[in-house]
Amino acid sequence: MKSFKIQDLISVGIYAAIYYLLMAIAVFALHMGFGIFSYMFIPSGTALVAGIVYLLMTHRIPKFGAITILGLVNAAFFMFSGYFALSFIPSIVCGILADVIQHKTNLPEKIRTLLGYTIFNFSLTGPILPMWFMQDAYKEALASKGKDASYITEILKPVNNMTFALIILSIIVCSIIGLWIANNIYQKHFAKTKGQTNENIIR
């Protein structure tokens, strides 16, 4: 983090803004397809479309700390947007862990990028994990916001072990697909402008 410059922080801010724009597009598309239950697939939907932001950050700001900052931005968003009280924790943990994998390990670049991106996408699970692991507290939080019993029952209806496994699997699969799409975009539009080789990050 000491090597960060003002320009790096500005760049992270720009990438964070693009990230949230892509997330908003994913949320809109999911809502159109899944209605009230779309919230469960926001992490995987975002993973599908936001890979290019991750690639640009790791290539244009190749320093430990950039991914962590993006995770902290997610955490701040969850803290101040009325989500469940502990929703920010996965964003911090997954952001730091992805950063460590990306910049502090000796894994091959393809593996580092794919593993880091996949783990980072779990940073968006903070608002939904309490539905499985802290359900009573989650119900109380919804009730305190004025949600009636029928709404709470309806929104928790699909919460079971099978849907939990489906969400985990969808995040992993969408991270792989999303990074593959992002790599094609990066190689076509960005790599040559930076004098980088055309070797794919993920094939």
Rank of each mutant, 00 (worst) to 15 (best):
A26K: 10
W180L: 14
N198K: 12
I202P: 04
G116N: 04
L142C: 14
W180S: 09
Y54H: 07
H189S: 14
V53R: 00
I67K: 01
I128N: 02
V27G: 01
I25H: 00
L124S: 11
I168H: 08
F41C: 04
K5H: 10
F77Q: 04
A26C: 05
T68I: 06
E109V: 11
L97E: 00
G146A: 02
Y39C: 10
M32E: 10
L55H: 01
Y19L: 09
D99L: 02
S81M: 03
N106E: 10
H31I: 05
N198P: 00
F34L: 15
L179G: 07
K145Y: 05
I69C: 12
N200W: 03
E109S: 09
Q7M: 04
L114R: 12
G33T: 05
M134I: 09
P108K: 10
G195D: 04
F190M: 11
D8C: 06
Y15L: 15
A75D: 11
L70N: 05
V173D: 12
G51D: 06
I101G: 00
L30Y: 07
L169I: 14
F28G: 04
W180A: 11
I171Y: 12
E140T: 14
I202N: 08
L129K: 06
K63P: 14
Y19N: 08
F84W: 12
K192Q: 07
M32A: 13
K147E: 08
L124V: 08
Y186T: 07
A76I: 12
I67H: 08
I69N: 10
L55P: 00
D136I: 13
S170N: 15
G51Q: 06
Y20M: 13
C94F: 02
A141Q: 08
L166F: 13
I42N: 03
S123V: 08
S170V: 10
L114V: 06
V93D: 00
A141D: 15
L21N: 00
N184C: 09
I61H: 05
K104H: 03
F78H: 03
I171C: 14
G116R: 03
G146F: 06
F28V: 08
F4I: 01
N198A: 10
K63N: 07
F164Q: 09
W180G: 06
P62S: 13
Y39G: 12
Q135I: 10
P43T: 10
R60W: 11
S44C: 15
C174R: 11
Y19P: 00
Y39R: 13
L22N: 02
H189I: 09
Q187V: 10
A24N: 04
M79P: 03
I92S: 02
A149I: 08
M40P: 02
L156M: 12
Y117V: 06
I36V: 15
H189P: 06
M79E: 07
L107Y: 06
H59Y: 14
T125Q: 02
A16F: 07
G116E: 05
A85F: 15
T163A: 04
A137W: 12
